[in-house]
């Protein structure tokens, strides 16, 4: 997907759901490791990504490492 708005939307979602208030998120900031997102957020995140993509994601095909950081998510879900 080539929509340049995807990354900022994803970043904003993360900021909105972050456990503690955070500023800008670097592409390689470890989200789960740093406790920015919890495993509970992942479901909602997948549903949000589906809404961005406009199509369903096969949850069984998702590699857990995809949620490591913003870069990994952009690569894994949007090929960007």
């Amino acid at each position: 997907m080539d929509d340049p708005g995807t990354r900022p939307k994803l970043e904003q979602w993360i900021r909105d759901h972050a456990k503690t208030p955070i500023g800008a998120i670097a592409g390689d900031t470890p989200l789960l490791e740093k406790g920015i997102l919890s495993s509970l957020d992942i479901v909602e995140l997948v549903l949000f990504i589906e809404s961005l993509k406009g199509e369903e994601v096969d949850p069984d095909a998702i590699e857990p490492d995809t949620f490591k950081n913003l870069d990994a998510m952009m690569r894994g879900f949007f090929g960007a």
């Binding site: 495993s39 992942i42 949850p59 069984d60 857990p64 490492d65």
Partner: peptide, 11 residues
């Protein structure tokens, strides 16, 4: 489970 498997338990 690994942390990833806890997150996505289907597999």
């Amino acid at each position: 489970p690994t942390a990833g498997e806890k997150m996505l338990p289907g597999k």
